[in-house]
Amino acid sequence: MKIGAILLPLALRASVAEAQATTAEPELTVFAAASLSGAFQEIGGMFERAHPGTRVSFNFAGSQQLATQLEQGATDDLFASADERWMTYAADKGLLAEPPRLFAHNRLVVIVPATNPARIGRLQDLAKRGVKLVIAAEAVPVGAYTRQALGKLAQAPDFSTDFDRRVLANVVSQEENVKAVVTKVQLGEADAGVVYVSDATGSVARHLRAFPIPDAQNVVADYPIAVLNGAKAPKAAADFAELVLAPEGQEVLKRFGLIPAAVQAGMALPAGIR
């Protein structure tokens, strides 16, 4: 542990030694999807240790909210979205300084409070009458993925064809970002929620029970990152994106339950994103 704590910053310092030469950019502002908060804060710490003199500050929120804020004139350096929809949106508005790059994937999982008040035993139970389900709003990436996954489940052999309709009828709240869904389930106020696998890790895990969604019906969330037009710290922003894509950054993302970019589609984005 101790050795790691010493070695890791050293290794980092070596890997981004070139970048260290320029410390003229005192502050880097990163707009990142709420689901990235744990991983990015840790990567931010790594970055600050490797770039003395540069402070990283984050704005974590639903990607749809970040995209709107950027459109309304928020001047920031880097945007990491939880889906391609809002990155494309930002690209269409001319907000990006470079083509976005995929840096991670995520999958969905159903969570219930550790006390499991609605006695959910399997995914089918989500359609039981009276289950209080909390999901994200449709505009939030995870909200859109959730609806896709429910649709796929309704086509699966062990599920009724109106599964998605019945589950959606159980929704009691549409939250504005994935962390708000986690909170309502963690506090035991909701019977179940649909979040990213990465949100069911870390310190909240002991308050939750997770029910995996089978691969065939799950949805792969793609996370693109891009430096923004008019960035005040373009160099630091590019370095941060590099760090996220570098093995050290990917390792952190993996530890927080995200899937490294290289595992699925390569590094390039499919057509549709410029």
Binding site: V171, S173, K184
Partner: peptide, 9 residues
């Protein structure tokens, strides 16, 4: 406290 659901909260 009440969440966000159209027509209800």
């Amino acid at each position: 406290f009440a969440g966000n659901y159209p027509g209800r909260t």
